[in-house]
Nucleic acid binder design. Structure first.
Lengths: 165, 165
DNA sequence: CGGAATCCGCCACGATACTG
DNA sequence: CAGTATCGTGGCGGATTCCG
């Protein structure tokens, strides 16, 4: 078994809490979290993207993804299958053959995710710029803080030695 | 410091690897992963949703989210700020006041995410149904497997005792 | 080939305490 | 009020081994 639905407790306990927040993260936020956790985990997105092109076997996926372990591929596929996003077809041949494919639901999800991908591609530069700006500011601030701290300590030391001497 | 950009190593090391996969997860997959990791972490989405309504102070966010720790709120806000999704405004008053607001970039991201929220709301029933169906099948399969295993062991035991007797 | 079971390292997250 | 610093922990993800 290992783990269940991963719960994500906290703000998602009951259905009729009266949050100020929009509406969707009080009522459906729970669900959004679940599918978000699903597609955001390390491999699901990649698997969905690959299966959107064509149906694939376990080993084909394993080869194509490069870096994934058998365990994580199996886990990812189980999760996606459980949510009805991926279908699993077993051919009772020797050696055994298992095909994975996106369900219609999975296809629509992938289409929806594409919006996010498009947004990211369109704004990569802005994000990168924001990051370097932030890092630069942070570095400056940190230097200033350190300088002030050193100054303060120096004064404190002077005062102490002065008082003692 | 604590941690950096969280890397996500593996398939995201260089820009000119020749994957078969679509295009976007070879070229921009790296970036998609980053913003996905950002919005998919436990609190970012909630923070973005709240700030999309109106600008909020640190404590207002803390009160409104209910369950978040100061540390995680601070971390989340810094991450969002670093990516240029949230702006931080300090008023040098006593007591100090800090306002957080979505940047234009953050607003467009939130709009994009709404598509995912809408999809989730529209398909919650299907997902739930798929899950119960999967769990039921799994339970049946597991029972069958256990039954077969017990049968096999019984036969093995018979054979062994028969050979020995 | 297509998994499941087991062990383990590491990091995100949380609780607590302290600072400006 | 708005954070940072420190410590402890659960769970994700990887490596390995075994099964049908």
């Amino acid at each position: 078994m290992e783990d269940g639905t991963s719960e994500t407790p906290g703000y998602c306990s009951d259905t009729d809490t009266g949050y100020d927040v929009s509406q969707w993260d009080a009522r459906a936020g729970c669900e959004v979290r679940q599918i978000l956790d699903r597609i955001a985990d390390k491999w699901s997105l990649l698997v969905i993207a690959l299966l959107d092109r064509r149906s694939l076997r376990f080993t084909e996926l394993r080869r194509e993804i490069d870096g994934i372990s058998q365990r994580m591929l199996a886990r990812t596929l189980r999760h996606l299958e459980r949510d009805g996003l991926v279908s699993r077809t077993v051919y009772p041949s020797v050696p055994p053959r298992v095909d994975y494919a996106l369900t219609p639901l999975g296809v629509t999800l992938h289409a929806t995710i594409q919006a996010l991908v498009t947004w990211t591609e369109a704004n990569t530069d802005q994000i990168a710029a924001a990051r370097v700006a932030y890092d630069r500011r942070e570095a400056v601030d940190r230097l200033d803080a350190d300088r002030r701290a050193a100054e303060r300590d120096a004064i404190a030391h002077e005062v102490l030695t002065g008082a003692r001497g």
